[in-house]
Design a protein around this nucleic acid. Structure first.
Length: 542
DNA sequence: TGAAGTTTAA
């Protein structure tokens, strides 16, 4: 078992929110306005880069730039909108306190339990849910809190909380701990459900432990979860999505005697073959499907079309579209989205836009994903104005923009160096109560690294934290590598440290790059630190 | 997150 995987090293304050939350408040006001220094980066000699070349920490006491932009008012900015009620205020205060403790560095979940014992935080389902969401990328913190909460008098974890925790442990490959939790859920009685086992199977397969995923399916009736068609389909889908369609077929052949397949079982397999570009097998499965009395549906054909689109074989894709129409199984928005998107990606912009007319001719209503794809294509083609006007069209046709809409626009703006427009989009999201996700920030973070806008970067990370979004593995990798490549090895190093502390294992190339750049910059002590981290990360991996 | 589609990214 791998409990004490974290080591105590000095905490890089890259994401340190304690005191932290309050530091965040200076950046992230309730209404979220762009700071003055962002709008006028060069004013008063202030640049995006700003200060803090090596000390890349959140401002704790005061930030003159921020104060200036708010008229130097001494009133501290509030962290969040006024709490709706007294209970809400108490909840938020407790949440901040728990969050503060969890953000300190602990060697093990047990150490967190001890630390938490000294604090008077009130536990509730809501609290556990929010903590697990915020610390979903820090399994030691999440699990420590979870254990502590479970031991509080008068409180029992809900099945949902258990499931979230199972998922987090699985995400970090803490499979022993994960199974321990499942046993606990089973002992309490009736808490293990298909939802739980779905997470288990997906995380195991995601870690390339396909046979363990199949074993998990096989033994799930021991926990009172029925091995029915729905459950089998989850297993098949998991194996297909996690790069093992052959194992999916194997499992299917073994199970079909005891579990009756349905239309989705076959569609799942067809899709699996298509994703693996094994078209003969896909066609064979379609035949088999018909022998079982299931006619191939829009879903089946759409999978085929997608595979041909990925191959850029648009001729065949068009031929299948016609075949579908003639067979009385007309394509739908999803089918068209796939074709349009692939055309756009291939640079065939006009042909892609023609699909829009086809959709209307076929009388099928565009949905948000379809529009999002259209926006993506326009953005890629540099037609940002047009892309923005699609959003207006969406709203006018009763299809509200989604996170992906904004993310696509932000990404397009960043790609065309329109940083301010991208940032304004964040404001628009806030205005429209559209919750950002990690994909919202990635292009912005990358742009900041490229431009060496350390201050904006810090601002964004703060903003993310307030939204309960923490960098994932690829975001950390992006931050580390792009900062390194752009002459900010010291800051890059801090993110690398943070990344390891959160339980992520950076790739060897990432370490090598940082060491190389630190060396070139004569930052020897930082280099030594990174070399130590490399060893520790390797130890964690075992 | 999951029987098909959109946004990040090396």
């Amino acid at each position: 078992m791998q409990r004490c995987c974290r080591v105590i090293v000095s905490q890089p304050a890259v994401l340190r929110p304690h005191k932290g939350n309050h530091a965040a408040s200076r950046f992230c006001t309730a209404g979220f306005e762009l700071p003055e220094w962002f709008r006028n980066p060069k004013k008063d000699g202030d640049s995006f880069d700003g200060d803090d070349h090596d000390k890349f920490v959140l401002p704790i006491k005061s930030d003159p730039v921020e104060e200036r932009s708010h008229g130097g008012s001494s009133k501290p900015l509030s962290l969040r909108p006024e709490a709706a009620s007294h209970e809400d205020a108490e909840f938020e205060a407790d949440f901040d306190e728990a969050s503060r403790i969890l953000t300190s560095c602990f060697a093990s979940p047990e150490a967190i339990v001890i630390a938490m014992d000294c604090c008077p935080v009130r536990v509730s389902d809501r609290m556990v849910d929010k903590i697990l969401r915020r610390f979903g990328s820090d399994w030691v913190a999440a699990f420590g809190f979870f254990m502590w909460a479970g031991a509080q008098e008068g409180y029992c974890h809900s099945a949902d909380s258990y499931n979230s925790m199972v998922d987090i442990l699985g995400k970090f490959k803490q499979f022993d701990l994960m199974w321990g939790l499942i046993t606990q859920m089973d002992e309490i009685g009736g808490l293990v459900s298909l939802a739980t086992m779905t997470k288990v199977m997906r995380r195991l397969a995601g870690a390339s432990r396909w046979s363990d995923a199949i074993d998990a399916f096989n033994k799930m009736d021991r926990f009172g979860v029925v091995k029915d068609t729905t459950a089998m389909n989850v297993l098949l889908d998991t194996l297909c999505k996690e790069r093992s369609v052959k194992r999916a077929r194997g499992a299917f052949q073994e199970l079909r005697g005891s579990v009756p397949p349905d239309e989705s079982s076959f569609n799942t397999l067809v899709h699996g073959w298509c994703k693996a570009r094994m078209m003969n097998e896909a066609r064979d499965t379609m035949k088999e499907m018909e022998e079982h009395g299931f006619k191939p549906s829009v879903i089946t054909y759409t999978s085929l079309i997608e595979a041909y689109c990925m191959e850029k074989d648009f001729q065949t894709a068009y031929a299948i579209l016609n075949e579908m129409r003639s067979k009385g199984c007309p394509p739908n928005v999803i089918t068209y989205t796939i074709v349009m998107h692939a055309l756009g990606k291939d640079g065939r912009t006009q042909e892609a836009l023609d699909i829009f007319d086809k959709v209307r001719r076929d009388g099928c209503a565009p949905d948000a994903s379809f529009y999002n794809s259209l926006i993506y294509i326009l953005g890629r083609a540099g037609r940002l104005e047009d892309a923005n006007s699609v959003v207006d069209k969406m709203s006018s046709t009763g299809v509200p923009p989604t996170v992906a809409t904004f993310n696509t626009l932000i990404s397009a703006a960043c790609d065309h160096s329109q940083a301010e427009n991208a940032l304004k989009m964040l404001v628009r999201m806030e205005e429209q109560s559209c919750k950002p996700d990690i994909k919202t920030y990635t292009p912005l973070l990358k742009l900041c690294c490229k431009r060496q806008w350390i201050k904006v970067l810090r601002f964004l990370i703060c903003h993310m934290f307030r939204k309960d979004i923490t960098p994932d593995f690829s975001t950390y990798t992006l931050l580390v590598t792009w900062l390194c490549r752009n002459g900010k090895p010291a800051q890059s190093c801090l993110f690398l440290e943070e990344m390891v502390l959160k339980g992520f294992t950076p790739k060897k190339e990432t370490f090598d790059l940082v060491v190389e750049k630190l060396d070139k910059a004569n930052l020897h002590s930082a280099k030594k630190k990174v070399q130590l981290l490399t060893l520790r990360a390797a130890a964690v991996k075992v």
